[in-house]
Design a protein around this nucleic acid. Structure first.
Length: 176
DNA sequence: CCCTGATTCGC
DNA sequence: GCGAATCAGG
């Protein structure tokens, strides 16, 4: 694809994940995984800001607003315009952080019964599927229960023995 | 050290 | 408008 612009699908996903309370890096990773894109966290952040993404307080804080007299009851809608109304800092999102997804790998989404002992046990679904949970299924690295991408996703680096691929360009290798 | 978010600046 | 580079804090 050759989009100089973000597809609405991606933007929608971005909003969804954002409202879900995930960090930009994770949002990026998940969108990357789902759409097979290669957005960096910077890209996601920049896009989010440009989109005017804001934390709907009325969602996270449905409490009564004890605004001071003189202050207009600006509850039902925060100005989404690029004026000068940005909150002092980040409002941070409370709930969420449920499940991680994955990197640039496309999971086989196999069932547990099909999962072998040498397959990556990375949980998929369960988030908005409603269907049975599936797993990555990629051949896991020796000594690990996950494949390389998922292993590095869980934890960074590999005891100073994995600094080979500089600018990592993860692309799937699964063919058949 | 790792991570995070936020901004600026060049394309 | 997009995103990398960079900055700043945890």
């Amino acid at each position: 694809m050759e989009p100089g612009h973000w597809p609405s699908e991606h933007s929608d996903a971005l909003r969804d994940y954002f409202l879900k309370g995930m960090s930009y890096a994770e949002i990026g990773r998940q969108i990357n995984a789902r759409f097979g894109t290669a957005y960096t966290r910077n890209a996601v952040i920049g896009r989010a800001k440009r989109l005017g993404l804001v934390i709907p307080e009325w969602i996270t804080s449905p409490a009564i607003a004890p605004y001071l007299p003189g202050e207009a009851p600006v509850s039902p809608r925060r100005a989404v315009l690029p004026n000068l109304n940005l909150p002092p800092k980040s409002a941070m999102k409370p709930a969420a952080q449920v499940k991680l997804r994955c990197v640039g790998v496309q999971p086989r989404l196999i069932q547990l019964v099909e999962l072998e002992s040498a397959d990556c046990r990375y949980p998929y679904g369960g988030d908005k599927d409603g269907e049975g949970i599936a797993f990555c299924g990629h051949p896991c690295q020796p000594g690990s229960s996950y494949c390389a991408p998922h292993a590095r996703l869980t934890r960074r680096s590999g005891t100073g023995a994995a600094r080979v691929a500089g600018p990592v360009v993860l692309r799937l290798v699964s063919a058949a």
